[in-house]
Amino acid sequence: MKKPDFIKAFSFSRTVYAVTIMFLFMPLLVLVLYSFNESRSGSWTGFSLRWYVKLFTDSSDLWRAFGNSAIVALSSALVATVIGTLGAVGVNWYRFRLRGYLRTITFLPMILPEIIIGVSLLVFFSGLGIRLGLFTVFVAHVSFNLPFVFLLVLARLEEFDFSIIEASRDLGATELQTLWRVILPLTMPGIMSGFLTAVTLSLEDFVITFFVTGPGATTLPLYVYSAIRFGVSPVINALSVVMILGTVVLAWSMRRFLKNIAAK
């Protein structure tokens, strides 16, 4: 679309945008720079790859934390995706008694500050006498992932008219055949983005995990937290760069993957 001339001349917003992008990227660039710093302290002393070497050869705690994060992220995302997708299908097309209630309880967790969810789950688990550990972290992650999957799938479902479902039933499909042959294939992009969002959120979560975790259930963000809190090792810089690269690569492949699905 051709923009009218007076907008082109309006450069205030462009300037703000450019400065903002620099503001957003600058800290990450500093991290990249420092990850190659030879010295242990903050000041720059020279180029070195020692922290990367240490990250990959001598950081077993960190990799254990990464393993925990991966387990929790994949399992919680999977469960949240299955439950959330079914919920979205129900809410989008059918009227039932608890529909309004479900809409509210899928909305609330997204607007409540994370700490509230963390604290209430901690209190809940200890009240029930459930031992804190990977399982409680998993439960907490499903709980905060579920609403996101629900909404992403719902957004996708909203693009389709109910007549698609009626057409399927009309042509002879049972409810289950309709779910399997029409609803799921149609919703797949929404389901996939729900799943990937859930994985990302789960890998990312610190606050809620912090409250519901127990001995032996340190996730990567918790590991990073204690590293920041109790003496920063420049390994964290190297780790940050690897994670940044990881997210960029993941995001890139996710985009292509989603595009492929959408094109199908």
Binding site: I83, G90, I105, S120, E175
Partner: peptide, 19 residues
Amino acid sequence: RGPGLAYASPSLLWLTFFF
């Protein structure tokens, strides 16, 4: 009207119990 509650019940139960 239809199987809405059947689809929604896992979400309903999970969030009611854990949220």
